[in-house]
Simulated assay, not measured.
Amino acid sequence: MITTRTQKITILDDITFAIPARSIFTINGPSGSGKSTLLNMLTGIDRPSSGRIIFAGEELRVRSENQLARWRGQHVGIVFQFFQLIPTLTALENVLLALELGKSKLPRRSWRLRSLQCLDLVEMEQYAQRLPSELSGGQQQRVAIARALANDPPVIIADEPTGNLDSQMAHAVFDILTRLTQYDKTIIYVTHDLDLASRATAGLLLRDGRIVQQLHTHLTSGEQR
């Protein structure tokens, strides 16, 4: 709920769901359905006016803003629709920067190797020295995924990551994200594309701030975030 000077506006209402660990979980819905607000809740950027968000058995709402910022740096990697790579840095340097900003616990001498490993996971190691302007849109998004992996977070949130790509490249990027579940990653994937959503392990469909359908959900005991 958001409070303005004249009224209270409910953005999300009666939202209850669980995300299977090591799954690819899609959040689908039209513009204005509450997807962005839900993402902000899941990452601790916004706080719910009521209810709880539980991550690995811990409630996010009780953490301070500083604690939430540290938590995000360690537990969540974010992939954006428009890549948001630094244009003056190479692909490798963009991933290295994520380690710097995330205050990586890895020894600094191992940062380059870690960055190259992340680029290799998304099939971009051979382009490590290229600037974003020298890469296609799909290649830039792969670098953005590598950047999100840099600090080895258990959860990757992909916010419309294929919305700026053609269909063929969108499916290629989705395939890469799907493969990351083999490395114990949980992928939360926001999309308008019903075809991509249908390929997920589980998911939900939002409309007007409410869940109107839960898709493919199959949880086993203890397997949720």
Rank of each mutant, 00 (worst) to 15 (best):
D152H: 11
G51Y: 03
I188Y: 08
D193F: 06
L204D: 05
V62P: 12
E160W: 12
M41V: 13
L119K: 03
Q81T: 06
T3Y: 14
T6V: 08
E125R: 15
P153K: 07
L92S: 04
P107W: 04
S115N: 02
I188N: 01
Y127C: 15
D184Y: 09
I145A: 00
G222T: 08
T162Y: 10
F25T: 01
F80M: 05
L131N: 09
D152T: 13
T26D: 15
Q7A: 14
T178S: 15
M124H: 02
S31T: 12
I24W: 13
L89G: 06
F174P: 02
T88N: 14
F80L: 09
E134R: 13
Q139C: 07
R63G: 05
F83A: 03
A158I: 04
S115K: 10
L165W: 11
E223S: 13
E65F: 08
Q214G: 13
L206I: 04
A144I: 03
R108N: 08
L42C: 03
A91L: 02
I176L: 06
L165Q: 12
R112C: 11
A148K: 09
G203P: 01
R108F: 10
N66Y: 14
G73T: 01
L215D: 06
S104R: 03
H75D: 08
A150W: 00
G203S: 03
G209P: 06
V173L: 10
T6I: 12
Q81L: 02
D46F: 11
H75V: 05
L116F: 04
R47K: 08
I11T: 14
R130D: 04
A18E: 15
P161K: 01
H171E: 13
A158H: 00
Q213R: 13
Q129L: 15
K35R: 08
G203D: 00
A56G: 12
A91P: 04
R109M: 12
P132W: 04
D175N: 01
A202R: 02
Q81F: 09
R210D: 11
F174C: 00
H75R: 12
Y189V: 05
R179K: 09
P107C: 03
T178I: 11
V143K: 01
L39P: 11
A144R: 09
T186G: 10
L38E: 03
T4L: 07
I19E: 01
C118F: 01
M169Y: 05
T6E: 14
I27M: 07
R147E: 00
A56Y: 13
G137V: 01
A128W: 03
P48S: 03
E223Q: 13
A91V: 00
Y183N: 10
D175G: 01
R207I: 07
I86A: 07
A158Q: 06
D184H: 15
D14P: 14
V173W: 05
V155G: 02
S167K: 11
R47P: 00
P161S: 00
S115R: 06
D159S: 09
L219C: 09
R61I: 14
G77T: 00
A150R: 02
H218M: 09
Y189I: 06
L135V: 04
L135A: 05
S104E: 05
I9D: 12
I156A: 02
R207G: 05
L42S: 07
R112M: 13
L149K: 02
E123Q: 15
I78S: 06
I45V: 10
